[in-house]
Amino acid sequence: MIPLIQAAIVAVFLGTWQMLSPALGLQFFFATPLAVFQSLWALMKSGLLFYHAGITSLEAVAGFLLGGTLGMGIGILLGRHQLLAKVLAPFLTAIYSLPKAALAPLFILWFGIGIDMKIFLAGSIVFFLVFLNTFHGVREVSHEQIAILRLMKANERHLLTKVIIPSAIVWVFAGLRLSVPYALIGAILGEIIAANRGLGFLISSAAGRFDTAGTFAALIAIMFLALVLNRAITFAEGRLMPWRAAEEGREVPI
């Protein structure tokens, strides 16, 4: 039922767009869905779309992994060491408050206009989201569970692998899920500012040629990429947290 309604909404939306755009003389700004589709099809047939999408995915995923790994590691470290966390808190807040887009020119100076600059830009955004979530997750770990394990003679490594990381991983994934669009922002922003490849470049070059159909086509490709990344996260979640599925499957006790 719900998919039918959703399909109907899409059909009505696209149909209205298709009719209104030429009727109001707005084809230039709002290319008709048909034109967008044709543009998208041409890009796909030439293989250009996959080439650019591949570059952007590479940047986003690499930035995601880089920022995610560092964010998780440092989040766990600071979550376990209150003193260190207190010492570093003002510095981290200061860097966090900085809009990462403002770092782009500096990153270009440091790393050039190649892929690595986009990776670092995406990574710097992802890092903070994952770090903050992991940090919070580690601080939320049940003290009772830790006490019970310490009574079993657990050392810090045991606590980390058996309680802290499994317990914080829910939060880590919340951070990762939140990061998907931001990793794409980092990659695409980098491409718009300085690049000759990637979906961001595709957008800016199409827009530069007043090709709205091409611009919309690239936007659709980005949307699709974000969907794929989200699904990948969901898949990883299911594999890494099988107990969550078990919890969802049970009957709700009152």
Partner: peptide, 19 residues
């Protein structure tokens, strides 16, 4: 400090939900 010569079975079971 934590007394590792005792075992404690608390009122709440405190099993690890991810295991």
């Amino acid at each position: 400090d934590i007394n590792v010569r005792v075992g404690y079975m608390t009122q709440v079971d405190h099993l690890l939900p991810w295991r």
